[in-house]
Simulated scan of single mutants.
Amino acid sequence: MNIKQYLDSTYLKTAEQAGLSEADNNTVVQGFIQEAIDEGFKLIMIRPDKVKMAREMIAKAKSKVLVGTVISFPEGTDSLEEKLAEALQAIEDGADELDYVANYEAFKRGETDLVKNEIYNGTLLGLENHKAVKWIIEVAALTDAQIIQFSALIKNVVITNFKENCLPNVFVKSSTGFYKTENGLPNGATFPTIIMMLENASPLPVKAAGGVRTYEEAEEMIRLGVKRIGTSAAKTIANGETASGNY
């Protein structure tokens, strides 16, 4: 198994969140991009304003690493129009994959039509531009029943409105890594939540984001059926070491 082809190496902190200057944070981003190129990871996941930088570095290196970015991150509460505008700009800047944060708070309030509408339109924009799309449901903010229902909702919107050959390019993804939990509870992927997602999102693929800290955990996620793993410690995991962070 080439585990590196399952790993989306991820750095999503703003300069303020990292406690760095913009210049120093850019240097960190460049380091993550270069590492993804050197290690041959599947994808580098960065903020939308860093997509051009990643595209240029990858092109210069003649690398096959994909560029992914996040949309409406991390709360997912932007309007549909705002989400589509941000996604379109990311596409124009060279993104290969769009990881939208679904409006999980609207879903929890029972605003199903709003959520279905953004899933449909966000997916349509991505697929029309030949991009993979992932929908982050933020499992730490949901009950088990809501995880099941949300995964099924996304699946149903996609299989109802898009051709079968599109389905492998629309993922359900677990977490942003930025959700604040209480009492030290996990804010990312756990085996129980991923199993629920796999069972209820199928035939859509699932991305386990956050919480995977070792090669063995990554291998088990893949064995269960996960197609991608989001982590800020991709090299550590690939080397068989234990990551220290939450994402």
Rank of each mutant, 00 (worst) to 15 (best):
M1D: 15
M1V: 12
N2F: 04
K4A: 03
L7E: 00
Y11W: 10
L12R: 00
A15F: 11
Q17S: 05
G19P: 07
L20F: 11
E22N: 15
D24S: 14
N25D: 13
T27W: 14
Q30W: 00
G31R: 04
I33H: 04
I33T: 08
A36R: 07
I37K: 00
I37S: 00
G40C: 00
I44P: 01
I46A: 06
I46H: 06
R47T: 09
D49T: 07
M57P: 04
M57H: 04
K62V: 11
K62Y: 08
S63K: 03
S63Y: 03
V67R: 00
I71Q: 02
F73I: 01
E75F: 11
E75C: 08
D78A: 15
L80D: 03
E81H: 12
L84A: 10
L88I: 02
D93L: 03
D96L: 08
E97S: 12
D99P: 02
V101G: 00
A102M: 10
N103L: 10
N103K: 08
N103M: 09
N103H: 12
Y104W: 11
Y104N: 08
R109I: 07
G110F: 10
L114H: 10
V115N: 02
N117R: 14
N117H: 14
Y120F: 14
N121L: 14
G122H: 09
L124T: 13
H130I: 12
K131S: 03
K134Q: 04
W135I: 09
I136Y: 02
I136W: 03
I136M: 05
I136G: 02
E138D: 11
A140V: 05
L142R: 01
L142Y: 05
T143M: 13
N156T: 13
I159L: 09
I159P: 10
T160V: 09
F162L: 06
K163I: 13
C166G: 11
N169W: 09
N169P: 02
N169D: 10
V170C: 07
S175A: 15
S175I: 06
T176C: 07
F178Y: 15
N183T: 05
N183L: 11
N183Y: 12
N183V: 08
G184K: 04
N187W: 04
A189D: 06
T190R: 08
T190V: 09
F191P: 03
T193V: 15
I194A: 06
I195W: 01
I195L: 09
I195Q: 14
M196L: 15
N200E: 03
N200Y: 03
P203H: 13
L204Q: 12
V206M: 04
K207G: 06
G210Y: 02
E220D: 13
M221T: 06
M221L: 13
I222C: 08
G225T: 02
R228L: 00
I229P: 00
G230N: 06
T231E: 00
K235I: 12
N239F: 06
E241H: 14
T242F: 05
T242M: 10
A243S: 13
G245L: 09
Y247N: 08
